[in-house]
Amino acid sequence: MNRKRTLFLPAMALIILLGLQSGVNTALAQPPGQRPSLPPIPITSDTTHTLTRHFVPASAAKKTPDAKGFIQRWLVLEPVKKDIARNSILTDSYLRTTLSADNFSSDYTIIPKNGQTVKVGDQELKWYALDSKTFNVNLYHFTYAIDKPRYGILVWLVTVIDSPEEMKNVRLAAGANSASMWWLNGQEALTIPGDRDMVADNVTSQRLTLKKGKNVIRGAVINGPGMANFCLRFLNEKGAPIKNLTISYR
């Protein structure tokens, strides 16, 4: 089991904990007693806030999708703070309302610059151009690395796909934890509502056309408690990954 619980909800956490203990004690016939103390748990990880552990700052070097077609180069905006107690509130309507309100630009083809700051509400947020070391982009690692809130976040994303030719009937395939929305060249392509796990090809778009040359992908991942990450690739008509693309952040 794993109750996705956030740190900034102490009241709720307390209720859950109390509930757990009282429920356990009465329902499961465990005699009341002290909650056992945890054994010592050694810290073996590098706990410093370091971006380069999971990411490489994006360079001008040519970047292609990985062997399975996943897009690993992204412009990632520092998280917009959101008070979200549970991911199950992330319905389609919630996504639409929130993402149009907490947006840095309603021009979905805009390409921000690495290091640029933008305003979302009264928050001043900075863009990072990053290459993920894994097939997916772990936003939890990202927010930890830049020492920003890890839970209750909305993260905006942009990347630029260079296609050698026009490609019809391709599909954008994404998985995200938790909810997300995706746009291709300004057009809404995908909505992934709910308390989701990041699963490759969890949701696919309708048939789309990649233009010859630059295509702008915009994304937004929103997460309350728990892990936040996403993976994204393009599939051809047969469901196979498209790999003859190049990815840039400009």
Binding site: R3, G19, L20, G23, D92, T191, P193
Partner: peptide
């Protein structure tokens, strides 16, 4: 249908008195 998920009342019913 791709519609908003509508919650049923109540949530976690973990901490119930067994009687």
């Amino acid at each position: 249908l791709a519609v908003d998920f509508v919650r049923m009342p109540g949530g976690m019913r973990f901490n119930r008195n067994s009687d």
